[in-house]
Design a binder for these strands. Structure first.
Lengths: 263, 263
DNA sequence: GGTGATTTGTGCGTATGTATT
DNA sequence: TAATACATACGCACAAATCAC
């Protein structure tokens, strides 16, 4: 073991993990270069391959390393795209700070030199209990879910699902299995339901198996989940749940008066 | 193998993990009961102990299970406490929606029947590059960091760090190694620096080793990190970075007009 | 296009350590 | 103290994906 095993009586694989962290921080294996292969790490540290794998597992689950079968082990890349979830928009963008039509997403990405695309789905399902509660529905009542699967530079970025009470969507373009040009907000406005407020709830958690499969993030990449309930003067209008791959997204909220500096 | 290995040619440990997920979802091992011990799972599924551990590893890193040496393997508990990061406060609370004095935290916890405590530290350090940038400082300039380590029912909940430019804090109570009664906002107000706006940036990531040690969450529990830059009319005032253990916290933002329903 | 070498993935077995009960 | 249960560590073999030739 070339690792200082002096005062710290911790297990080998943990010391090994700590040493790899140090070497990463010091800049070995910059950019896209691979780490030494497992057999070489065995020899460098004089441990069994199993121990090497345990150590690398730790860093993988911290989101620092990615293993690719047949290729090697690499530093995880973190190309982030900011998304302004609320607040003053750039002059070139429409909206009052609350609504974030698809166009806003795309212009954010464009200005960062990235490309955002989306697939659309519409489905009618029984409301999840938490959705039903927020919309004031009976448990098990039907809701229309309009889903956008967003890709950033071809890679999974977010899943956005708008939940509408069936009665609201009935007979409108919201029942069509296609995105509404101008955004769902336009349809709501025609119905006289202009969203003037919202409550956002933010949580982070690890993806479940289906989510992990879609997001392709692998272990160590949490999801950032934003659950927005929008309101007009009559009450709740819709629930918008957006799940972001946390290594690709930062959510921005502009709050209060920002006349001085908008950053 | 009692698992249906029919159409799915995935590895044993992954099928085993999927089966454990199913059994968890179906309610075996409710409340605080332990899962079968590893040797029993070996026999139930007819695999090596190593394979059992690989499968359980998956669920541990998804945040679903916790392993306790000498005791067993258990479902992870998720007692969450909402924290209102912005928006209309309850009538019993002071504040304009922007500032969140410690008193607010405590009353939130109290109303949920939980108890929140905090330890305080003050330190003077060179500004991190991102903090320096946001405060408009030269790289490496000194900042005063006022840190609150918050515990919820005796368990680690959050780390909040306010970063002040040294020039701002000099000669004020902000240099004292104790919390300011009434909150740091009171001191800023005396200096004529009333915070009127803020920009929040939200990200989720896995904890580093020191963070993991403090939060005691183990693998599978991400952090939710809120980085707030507050502004008065002259410019940025301070950077407040708050790291939450994601399994114990939900952040709430009230946005726009919420006269109708405040939930 | 294919073949073999490389590299990580999966799976088995065994032994011993450490914390809890 | 003894038994239980997870943690650490070694070893081996073969599979699957990738890459260089």
């Amino acid at each position: 073991m070339t690792i200082s095993s002096g005062g710290v009586p911790s297990p080998k694989y943990q010391r090994l993990a700590a040493d790899l962290r140090r070497r990463i921080a010091e800049g070995e294996w910059r950019d896209g270069n691979a780490l030494p292969v497992e057999t070489e790490l065995e020899q460098q540290y004089g441990v069994a391959r199993n121990t090497v794998r345990l150590a690398v597992d730790v860093l993988v689950n911290e989101g620092r390393l990615v293993r690719l079968q047949g290729k090697g082990t690499f530093l995880r890349e973190h190309p982030v795209l900011d998304h302004r979830a609320f607040g003053p928009l750039l002059p070139s963008q429409r909206g009052d700070g609350l609504a974030a039509p698809s166009a806003v997403y795309h212009s954010e990405a464009e200005q960062a030199g990235r490309r955002l695309s989306a697939e659309f789905e519409m489905l009618i399902v029984r409301a999840r209990v938490d959705v039903a509660e927020r919309l004031g529905l009976q448990p098990g009542e039907a809701v229309v879910v309009r889903r956008q699967l967003r890709l950033l530079d071809r890679e999974p970025y977010s899943i956005e699902e708008s939940h509408y009470r069936a009665g609201v969507a009935a007979g409108t373009a919201l029942m069509e299995p296609d995105p509404v040009p101008g955004g769902d907000e336009a349809v709501l406005a025609e119905l006289g339901r202009v969203e003037v407020g919202a409550v956002d709830q933010l949580v982070a958690r690890m993806p479940g198996p289906e989510e992990a499969q879609w997001f392709q993030g692998g272990p160590g990449v949490p999801l950032l989940v934003q659950t927005r309930v929008t309101y007009d003067r009559r009450g709740p209008v819709r629930v918008i749940e957006t799940r972001y791959s946390a290594d690709r997204c930062r959510l921005i909220y502009g709050l209060g008066r920002l006349d001085a500096r908008v950053k």
